[in-house]
Amino acid sequence: MIKGIISNGLYNNNAIFKQMLGLCPTLAVSTSSMNALGMGLATTAVLTGSNFVISIVAKYIPKNVRIPSYIVIIACFVTIIDQMMKANLYSLHKVLGIFIPLIVVNCIVLGRAEAFASKNKPLYSIIDGLSVGLGFTIALFILGSFREIIGAGTFFEMPVMLSSYNPLLIAILPPGAFLFLGFILAGKQFLDDKLKGEK
């Protein structure tokens, strides 16, 4: 059970590469590896917290008010994370800006609350939140790193390309997000097919 939850969250049902959920923050903040990591970890923290609380209280919530209740719980976690980041990671918070509060409407978070946490035990829900969140973080990080290396010639703001390298600007502009996501998805599909063929 636990193994299944983890592999589903990280790879088999990866929120971005498989389910294509939460693409708005994905495309908008994956301009650098640092932003991607910050956004991914903030979402993971919210997801784990909200999954845990919702799995405990779900059985007491009448069906007709469950979505507003989940949203209030999620919004509460997001605001706490937002305040904590502002207090301790001010410069990262400034870059991510509006996208932190917008985690509230990230469909991954509500999706896991509705599809998993409301039907499962707290322990499983925490593991699910962590693995889906980390899967999201890894996907964002891959996308962000590619875009930063190609679009700015840096990785974690350290130059990694030859000084003669002329950054391909489009990679860090919005269209670049779509292009690179497409390339990564195609690459993943190619690998998956290869692995299947060998079995």
């Binding site: 209280v57 007491y60 919530i61 009448p62 008010v65 507003p68 209740s69 209030v72 719980i73 919004a75 509460c76 605001t79 706490i80 305040q83 904590m84």
Partner: peptide, 17 residues
């Protein structure tokens, strides 16, 4: 239910603020 949840959330936010 909604009342209890929102009040709890409000208290949590006040504490974190």
């Amino acid at each position: 239910t909604i009342t209890i949840i929102t009040i709890t959330a409000g208290v949590m936010l006040a504490l974190s603020h």
